[in-house]
Amino acid sequence: MRLGDVIQVNPESIRAGYPYEQIEYVDISSVGTGTMEGTKSISLDGAPSRAKRIVRNADTLLATVRPNLRSFLYVRQPSTNTIASTGFAVLRATDAIDPRFLYYTVTNQAFTDYLTANAKGAAYPAVDADTIKRAEIYLPPLSVQQKIAAILSAYDDLIENNLRRIKILEEMAQNLYREWFVKFRFPGHAKVRMVDSPLGKIPEGWDVRRLSDVCNLVMGQSPKSEFYNEEGKSLPFHQGVTDFGNRFPKTRLYCSVKSRLAAAGDILFSVRAPVGRINIAPTEMVIGRGLSAIRHSAGFQWFAFHLLKEKFKEEDSMGGGTIFKAVTKVDMQGIEFLSADNETHQRFEEIVLPVESQVENLTIKNSNLRQTRDLLLPKLISGELDVSELEINTGKKAA
């Protein structure tokens, strides 16, 4: 069955008479592999020209540029004014295909391989709507589609629940940072005198420091393609930060050049396109030119992590460049911040460490859930595993 026979591709776009003056914009950079960092509220008049695709509930967003990066999203209950970039194809199911089954079909690695093989262009390989429509898919009866979708959705629901818990934990830690190091309501603050500094009034005994004063900094550099290879032969390689908050997922790219390394636990900071995304290295890895690795020399790593998250709440708040912003090592070294006394820093680390440990444990659980789901997905989507006779609650009423 051809995919185009059972779906619509880009069924709606903004036209004259569009009723909303504000839109919730989904940009390419905000969507990962089944995840989204959020929408941007912008005026329709000030929206980029690529803000065109109207998005509805149960649509699938599929990035058409560099399909090998696997950027896609199943849309749940979007605002009525949600608009996606033309860098996405919006896939909408007809009555012949279950929307979640459609989503899992296009997230299957075999579908990604098909798109990658048919992409056109050297610098920005991309696929068009006709290429997507021509894809051959397995299409069992609707009742079987719903069973397959229910099995795979159970894993995604658990993952999403863990992500919500991670977000709450991260907000708790970040709020504590703001209380202590922004609002100066740290333990014993009432007994500390406020004094003048280049950054305004600060607690006595605190200092204005630069990142280079207290942190070791490694700037990444992308090796030539011949140094990339398969898992087990060298270290994981990452070019840039794609996920906020989550420890890096397992990479598909490995590198034998070991000159620009991040150690396990290093802060990973994106230095270009965009500037200011932050993550934590789960293991030793090679970092590309889109990343820097940061380690606090006194061991106050979680302080440094939340400091950078606070300073870069908005992406691209520093840096130069015409096409996209970027920062140099000198720019990074010159970042100014307030440094407290060692006792305050140590108490902050002791409180935050158990919270971050929970985040790490939930991240590991999600990694295991994804691994199991990804083993099942191709077998279910291809029909290799037959679920037609299984009693599975699909949430659908029998016809």
Rank of each mutant, 00 (worst) to 15 (best):
Y138Q: 00
A123F: 09
L115W: 08
T112G: 04
G121L: 10
A117T: 06
I132T: 01
Y114A: 00
F111L: 06
L115R: 00
D130R: 11
L102T: 08
K120N: 12
P125M: 12
D98E: 02
I137P: 02
Y104S: 02
A119K: 07
T107D: 02
P125C: 10
I137G: 11
A129V: 08
D113M: 03
G121D: 13
I132A: 03
A126M: 14
Q109E: 14
Y138L: 01
V106K: 10
Y114V: 08
K120D: 00
Y114M: 05
A126C: 13
A129W: 10
A135E: 00
T116F: 06
A122M: 08
A123V: 15
T105C: 05
Y124K: 04
F101Y: 14
K133F: 07
T131D: 01
Y124F: 14
Q109M: 10
A119R: 03
I97L: 00
Y103P: 01
P125Y: 08
I97P: 04
Y104E: 01
A126F: 12
T105Q: 03
A126E: 10
Y124S: 07
Y114T: 07
E136L: 15
A110D: 04
I137R: 02
T131W: 01
R134V: 10
E136G: 14
L115A: 04
Y104L: 05
A135N: 06
Y103E: 00
A117Q: 12
Y104W: 10
D113I: 04
I132V: 15
Y104P: 02
T112K: 08
E136N: 11
P99N: 11
I137V: 15
D113Q: 13
A126H: 13
A119P: 12
K133T: 02
N118F: 06
T105I: 02
P125S: 09
D98M: 04
L102W: 08
R100M: 11
N118D: 12
A126Y: 14
K133Y: 07
T105Y: 13
K120S: 05
I97M: 08
A126Q: 14
T131H: 04
A135Y: 10
N118A: 03
A135C: 04
I132H: 10
G121R: 05
E136T: 14
G121Q: 07
V106L: 13
I132G: 03
R134A: 15
N118E: 11
D130A: 14
N118V: 02
A126D: 03
G121H: 05
A123K: 13
I137Y: 12
Y114Q: 04
Y103N: 08
F101S: 01
L115Y: 01
V127G: 00
V127Y: 07
Y124Q: 07
D113P: 09
N118S: 11
D128G: 09
A110H: 01
Q109N: 12
A96D: 15
K133S: 15
T116W: 04
A126K: 15
I132R: 00
P99W: 00
I97D: 11
A135P: 01
R134T: 12
A135V: 06
I132M: 13
A129S: 12
F101M: 05
Y104K: 04
A129I: 03
T105G: 03
A122E: 03
A129C: 13
L102M: 11
V127T: 07
A117E: 11
A122T: 14
P125I: 14
K120L: 12
I132P: 02
A123N: 15
D130P: 07
V127F: 00
T116I: 05
Y138V: 01
V127C: 06
G121F: 05
D113V: 13
E136R: 15
Q109Y: 08
T105W: 10
